[in-house]
Nucleic acid binder design. Structure first.
Length: 855
DNA sequence: GCAAGGTC
């Protein structure tokens, strides 16, 4: 009987290379949602058809159910006991559907996911989406391949020795996901809601907390604290001047430096009086600088930052581009040792063609010794070049510089060590001992191709033991101890790696996160400098519960879930226990938040003292203030109420008009940029939509909360509501309605209240008003158009017309639609499109308008 | 709007 075997890898690139190996290059590929490689062979003694495909990382993501998504109505403390749901990570990629489709009719499943805990977890995600769809046959149907490298011997051996997926390891990952989610989200929502809107110059829309990002930030702040606490001290050092054969010899004092000026002066005097310095011993030693190990991701990120001045996130992006275009090998690897059987010759052969280092590679081909040392984690080989490329071919810039580095690093890792001779001379004057060292290169080794690693320093002039040199002068050099500088990004990466914060794939993300959240900024030399906000947060954690910002938070979680992975503890028990610990910490944090608040008060100015007077509050009838730093909002100092606004634009008062529902003064919001629309909103309604189900527009720009402007308000009695300003349904989006912008003159326009679609009305208009009449053909509201004197486009030269801008061809031709296909051409186009619009859309008219689309 | 982990 023939069987059909489905093989699944963690990413498309791996499914391709594993299929290549298992099929001896005979696989045929086809595209589905993801690539599938097929071939025939035998499986466990049976003839078999093989289908190899992949997922793209995790299939599912964890989150809270919709009920818990509202920041206002959900108590963050309740999140610790909340249920969680899993949904498809990337619905657009249709990974679930793909797996189910490919599983149909298969008799066996072989899991080729990466051999780490995350991979083990993905195994079960794959099982969930395949086994139910597979054919039932007797015996074991699901197998796990375990491999430590993507090489032919490893892969074929793994196929011979199939095992079973490890449920414990997978459960450990589920536990980690739940803990990270609950803890991170609870703290983030609580502190965001507590501080947001409380201070005027606090320019952060989300004040996030996370078991990785917060300790990462804390490293940067700790360095800042060391720097601020540093007390410089004066020190003195004796520096005699000597030379030989015209070459000056730099000597180090055996006592290094003294913090007592008087004592240092005494020694200076003694040395002066000695007048001569005698060489008491001279010795030489051969030393070596080791060639680099294979390049792994973390090392690449460090060097990209410190040597190339590239942000880690940028370095990852660049490396990925180089990988997908075939110039570099897979850039996410922990391994710094090449796997056994790695084909160095193949890479060297390719590098031989390179105009810059081709000769060097050629020379290495016959002479290199395979690298030893480093660590082979069994994920992917170290990062190496794959194809030869010149600066011009790669378009220069970061792409070229990163490629250049990786190629040189690879060649360096095959080159000999660099060797040099270090000569040390001991000298004495009076009773004082000094030393001088010189270096002379012996063999450049790898530094020939990595010149920045070359040994610096000069050789000593020839000295004889017993030889005496005259001292020409004796300085007393004064110095000050100095604090360390801010952490370099490269040092930060090193600390994260050392403390197990993040993984090779996520380190760059965490650093990027704390930059984007405005906790740190990257300064000259890629040093990571914490901001006022970053410092205040960490100091706050330190005051309330130091552990919250220490790397041990993560280490603790890792240790707990390690117990699950090893099968020593039940997942449920560990999760409950650990959640309980975090919930306790959370409750304590909440009760002590005023300690952190005190720090915020010292660093940020309260809302009451910031902002410009803008509009009247409907409750106290006094003026509210506009806080224009991001996130822009309105604050009533009397009611101590903060009202959010849409972001990415400006607001001004709207003729002093009031909202008939709550008495707040209405403001006009204008979105920045060309064609940015303007719409009216009542600050109170925007934040507290008065009608159940009225649909909201999400704020534009960072941190904008969804709100309800007048253009979405279904109030029939208010002259600003979309009910009164609507013209017709939006031809571009599903839900929107095109409304007249009553303040857009002299360039009159209409905008969709949901999407960015807009229509400029004829240019020669003087005034526009909505008529009460409706178009007989399409039910759109008709407009009364008043043209400028002598500029009427109407056939009889009439000054005004009441027309439907959709159906009146003359008027429609004079309009210009933007951010959408031209509606003029479309309205007579291909007939009805899509679903009918009747009865759809929240907050829409009960007797919906026809859309342009319906023609 | 929120975490961290995969990967694109």
């Amino acid at each position: 009987m023939k069987c059909t075997v489905l093989l699944v890898a963690e990413k498309p690139s791996l499914s391709q290379s594993i299929a290549q190996i298992l099929s001896n290059g005979k696989a045929h590929s086809r595209r589905s949602f993801l690539d599938v490689h097929e071939w025939s062979g035998s499986f466990r003694g049976q003839s078999a058809h093989f289908k190899m495909t992949s997922v793209m990382g995790h299939v599912m993501s964890i989150d809270f159910p919709p009920k818990y998504q509202n920041w206002e109505t959900t108590d963050p403390a309740s999140l610790f006991d909340a249920p969680t749901i899993k949904s498809e990570s990337n619905p657009k990629a249709h990974v679930c559907k793909h797996l189910q489709q490919e599983a149909r009719g298969c008799t066996h499943l072989v899991l080729w996911l990466d051999c780490d805990r995350e991979g083990e977890n993905i195994c079960f995600e794959v099982i969930e989406n395949t086994v139910k769809w597979m054919a039932r046959v007797p015996g074991q149907q699901v197998f796990r391949a375990r491999f430590s490298a993507i090489s032919a011997p490893e892969i074929t051996a793994a196929m011979e020795m199939l095992g079973e997926p490890n449920r414990c390891e997978a459960l450990a990952v589920d536990a980690r996901q739940e803990l990270d989610l609950k803890c991170g989200v609870a703290f983030t929502r609580f502190q965001t809601r507590f501080f947001q809107g409380k201070y005027g110059n606090l320019d952060a829309s989300v004040i996030s907390y996370g078991p990785c990002q917060t300790p990462t930030l804390a490293f940067c702040v700790q360095r800042h604290q060391i720097m601020t606490a540093f007390q410089p001290e004066d020190f003195w050092s004796v520096r005699p001047h000597i030379s030989k054969a015209g070459q000056r010899i730099d000597v180090e004092w055996g006592r290094g430096r003294l913090f007592d000026q008087g004592a240092a002066q005494l020694f200076q005097q003694l040395v002066k009086e000695a007048r001569m310095m005698r060489c008491t011993s001279i010795s030489s030693k051969e030393e070596r600088r080791q060639r680099p190990h294979g390049l792994n991701t973390v090392e690449m990120l460090k060097i990209a930052s410190s040597g190339l001045g590239m942000a880690p996130a940028q370095a990852m992006r660049t490396a990925e581009v180089l990988y997908t275009s075939g110039y570099l090998s897979y850039p996410r690897t922990e391994s710094s040792a090449y796997p056994p059987g790695f084909d160095f010759q193949e890479v060297l052969d390719e590098m031989r063609r390179h105009p810059i280092w081709g000769d060097y590679a050629q020379h290495l081909m016959g002479t290199f010794t395979p690298p030893k040392g480093g660590n082979d984690v069994g994920d992917h080989p170290p990062i190496t070049p794959i194809a030869s490329a010149t600066e011009a071919e790669l378009g220069g810039g970061d792409t070229w510089r990163l490629y250049d580095y990786v190629a040189r690093h690879f060649l360096g890792s095959l080159s000999p060590d660099c060797t040099f001779t270090r000569t040390t001379a001991l000298l004495s004057a009076g009773q004082e001992v000094f030393s001088a060292t010189g270096t002379s290169p012996k063999r450049p080794g790898f530094t020939a191709v990595m010149p920045w690693r070359a040994v610096e320093g000069e050789p000593l002039p020839p000295l004889q033991e017993g030889e005496a040199l005259p001292i020409t002068e004796v300085d007393l050099k004064q110095g000050k101890t100095s604090p360390p500088d801010y952490l370099t990004e490269s040092e930060l990466i090193g600390l994260m790696e050392k403390h197990g914060i993040g993984t090779d794939a996520s380190i760059a993300v965490h650093i990027n996160n704390i930059c984007e959240r405005n906790y740190v900024s990257i300064q000259a030399g890629r040093r990571v400098v914490p901001t006022e906000l970053g410092i205040t947060l960490v100091r706050g954690y330190q005051l309330i519960d130091q552990e919250l910002c220490l790397p041990q938070v993560r280490a603790h979680v890792e240790k707990q879930i390690g117990l699950i992975a090893e099968g020593k503890a039940e997942k449920e028990a560990v999760v409950l226990h650990t959640l309980d610990q975090f919930a306790q910490k959370f409750r304590y944090f909440v009760t002590k938040i005023d300690r952190m608040d005190a720090l915020f008060e010292a660093s940020f100015s309260p809302l009451a003292s910031s902002g410009k007077v803008l509009s009247k509050c409907g409750k106290c009838l006094r003026y509210m203030k506009l806080i224009s730093v991001r996130p822009m909002r309105i604050y009533c100092p009397t009611c101590e109420e903060v009202l959010n606004l849409p972001q990415g634009g400006t607001v001004k008062l709207y003729k002093g008009l009031e909202c008939p529902l709550d008495g707040y003064e209405i403001v006009l919001f204008s979105l920045s940029g060309p064609d940015g629309k303007t719409y009216a909103l009542c600050p109170f309604c925007y934040n507290n939509p008065p009608f159940e189900g009225a649909h909201k527009v999400s704020g534009q720009g960072a941190g904008g909360k969804a709100g309800m402007p007048c253009t979405l308000c279904p109030h029939t009695g208010c002259p600003h509501s979309f009910m009164r300003m609507r013209v017709t349904a939006c031809p571009e989006c599903e839900e929107g309605t095109v409304v007249l912008d009553p303040v857009s003159g002299p360039k009159w326009r209409m905008d969709c209240n949901t999407c960015s679609f807009l229509i400029y009305l004829p240019e020669t208009l003087h005034a526009v008003k909505l008529s009460k009449k409706r178009c007989q053909e399409c039910e759109s509201a008709m407009l009364r158009l008043d043209f400028k004197r002598g500029a009427s486009p109407l056939p009889d030269g009439a000054a005004d017309i009441t027309a439907c801008v959709v159906c009146n061809e003359l008027v429609a031709k004079l309009c210009t639609a933007k951010h959408g296909r031209s509606y003029v051409n479309r309205r007579r186009g291909s007939g009805r499109r899509g679903r009918g619009r009747r009865g759809r859309g929240r907050g829409r008219d009960a007797n919906p308008l026809l859309s342009f689309r319906d023609f």
